[in-house]
């Protein structure tokens, strides 16, 4: 299973920005034939998927393939960055 996580800190980062990254990964993955399960994770919580996060910085986008962390990008500045991560997954 391909997964995409957008880790954000609800104390600092707009949730909308993380959600936009997650949506873009889902949309782009579907468009290129790579279905992806996307999720945003608030690093102030206790989500078990926080194990894929490299603290302390946010917003961090992470791709995971079959439970293995593939790629990480800190604070992407534009949607093509997300598309490129999904392309490489």
């Amino acid at each position: 299973m391909r997964q995409f996580f957008a880790f954000y800190n609800s104390g600092f980062d707009p949730e909308l920005q993380a959600q936009t990254f997650a949506d873009e990964a889902t949309v782009h993955g579907t468009a290129i034939g790579k279905p992806i399960v996307s999720k945003i994770v608030d690093v102030t919580g206790n989500d078990p998927d926080k194990s894929f996060w490299n603290p302390p910085n946010t917003i961090e986008c992470v791709t995971v393939d079959a439970g293995t962390k593939r790629e990480s990008r800190l604070n992407p500045s534009a949607l093509p960055d997300i598309d490129a991560m999904v392309d490489r997954l």
């Binding site: 707009p14 909308l16 920005q17 936009t20 990254f21 873009e24 604070n75 500045s77 534009a78 949607l79």
Partner: peptide
């Protein structure tokens, strides 16, 4: 960042 397209 200031990038309204990604909600930033």
């Amino acid at each position: 960042y200031f990038n309204p397209a990604i909600g930033a």
